[in-house]
């Protein structure tokens, strides 16, 4: 049952991911990406990571992709406008992303998640209560750094878009 679900979800994830890349229309591409994000949220749910799944939906499907769709719809991109990238930049992009994926996989394999003590106590470490305690006790400093990083990038984005206004 679970295995069948996994295969169905994985098929959807892969199919929509490929369609995202291969569809000519940028809006169709974005919509396939949204579907891809949904199926990834489904994968999270199969790990019983409810919080991660729902936050993934809220942040990626609900916020980022909507803003992306906004931009694409308002700019009215057509496939004629799309410039062909050179072969070298394509290879460079593929290589860079492959390396990032390699590092990520290596991190996940080699890292020791702090779940041992929850395995012993039998507590549900996926629950939002435990997650919040871990984030704000054990990982307080990285958590705050991440929030500062987000804040800085937000201010930077606002500044960049306001630049012309200040000069002119």
């Amino acid at each position: 049952m679970i295995l069948t679900l996994f295969y169905i979800l994985s098929a959807i994830t892969l199919a929509t991911a490929f369609l995202t890349i291969f569809s000519k229309n940028p809006i169709h591409s974005a919509i396939y990406l949204v579907l891809c994000f949904f199926s990834i949220a489904g994968h999270y749910l199969m790990f019983n990571a409810q919080f991660l799944a729902i936050v993934h939906v809220i942040v990626y499907s609900g916020a980022i992709m909507i803003l992306m769709l906004f931009t694409i719809m308002l700019m009215n991109l057509n496939k004629e406008d799309e410039k062909n990238k050179t072969l070298l930049s394509r290879i460079a992009a593929a290589g860079a992303f492959g390396l990032v994926a390699l590092v990520l996989i290596a991190t996940f394999i080699k890292s020791h998640a702090v779940i041992a003590r929850y395995d012993v106590s039998g507590k549900d470490y996926q629950s939002i209560k435990v997650l919040g305690q871990v984030l704000l006790n054990d990982y307080m400093v990285p958590f705050e750094f991440a929030s500062i990083l987000l804040l800085v990038s937000m201010i930077g984005a606002v500044l960049l878009s306001k630049k012309e206004h200040i000069n002119g």
Partner: peptide, 21 residues
Amino acid sequence: IDIAMLYIFGVLSVGVYGIMI
């Protein structure tokens, strides 16, 4: 569910797609 409140927010934010698309 543990995250009912977030679920409602998730659904709300997905509801925008109906109008946009």
